[in-house]
Design a protein around this nucleic acid. Structure first.
Length: 232
DNA sequence: AAGCTGCACAACCGCCTGTTA
DNA sequence: CTAACAGGCGGTTGTGCAGCT
């Protein structure tokens, strides 16, 4: 049994949005809020597919969007997040306020890919292009896990459980948060950990919350919900 | 000036997932 | 439990524009 189409395609406009369509969509969302995209076009008087309205709003019309060039810090953050997450553009976008997954995906494909290639780095693996093929595997946290950690599911030194949030095509494993080497040993087993910015090497970033809140591993990379889900 | 090429980005398509009846 | 549905996501395509020949 096939799925029904998301909307009646025979009577919908396609292609670039007009100013009038934008204004209708904005006015409707301002009046009624987001949600129920399927019925929105009819309610707003638009001859558009609900999906198209959602995309237009999220990627272009939303008032909190930060338009304009990406900063160098944003560039580096995208590169580091891509190294960790792969093509999970929505997760990456979640770490860049005001940027959309579509915008980041386009920016990656047009700018950053070339930037990495110019640096001699493979944009897929984040490894040097001339590195031997045998080592040409995606970056994965599992690569730094010791055999005993993998076998027992616990870090033999800290006795902390190894939290595994890998997904079929993500190859991402999260081990207990990195502890500052200077931190007293007796404190290392606590929940205090580096924030995302420090984890990615932006210790001096204004976004760093380590010093403000003491940090927490609870929402590392914004994956708290994923971890909670996996632990069920 | 005309044609060609490459770039940037908006938009579409098809699939997947979570929710609901 | 299952099917239908709505929303979300990533890959891909289409289009406008600038630069070059």
């Amino acid at each position: 049994m096939g799925r029904s189409p998301c909307c009646e395609k025979a009577h919908t406009n396609k292609g670039a949005w007009t100013r009038e369509e934008d204004e209708r969509l904005i006015a409707h969302i301002q009046a009624h809020g987001e949600g129920c995209w399927r019925s929105l076009p009819k309610a707003a008087g638009l001859l558009r597919c609900g999906k198209s309205c959602r995309l237009r709003w999220i990627n272009y019309l939303r008032p909190d969007l930060k338009r304009g060039n990406f900063s160098d810090e944003e560039d580096e953050l995208i590169i580091k997040l891509h190294g960790l997450l792969g093509n999970k553009w929505s997760l990456i976008a979640g770490r860049l306020p005001g940027r959309t997954d579509n915008e980041i995906k386009n920016y990656w494909n047009t700018h950053i890919r070339r930037k990495l290639l110019n640096r001699g780095i493979d944009p897929l693996t984040h490894r040097p292009i001339n590195e031997p093929a045998t080592n040409n595997t995606p970056v994965s946290f599992s690569s730094v896990m010791k055999a005993e950690e993998i076998r027992t599911g616990f870090n033999p030194k800290t006795k902390n459980p190894i939290v595994d949030c890998s997904e079929p095509n993500l190859e991402l494993r999260i081990s207990p948060p990195y502890q500052h080497p200077t931190q007293p040993l007796e404190n290392r087993g606590s929940s205090r950990a580096l924030c995302l910015y420090c984890s990615l090497g932006f210790q001096n970033s204004k976004g760093c919350i380590c010093r403000r809140s003491g940090g927490s591993s609870e929402n590392f990379l914004g994956l708290k919900n994923v971890l909670d889900y996996r632990s069920l």
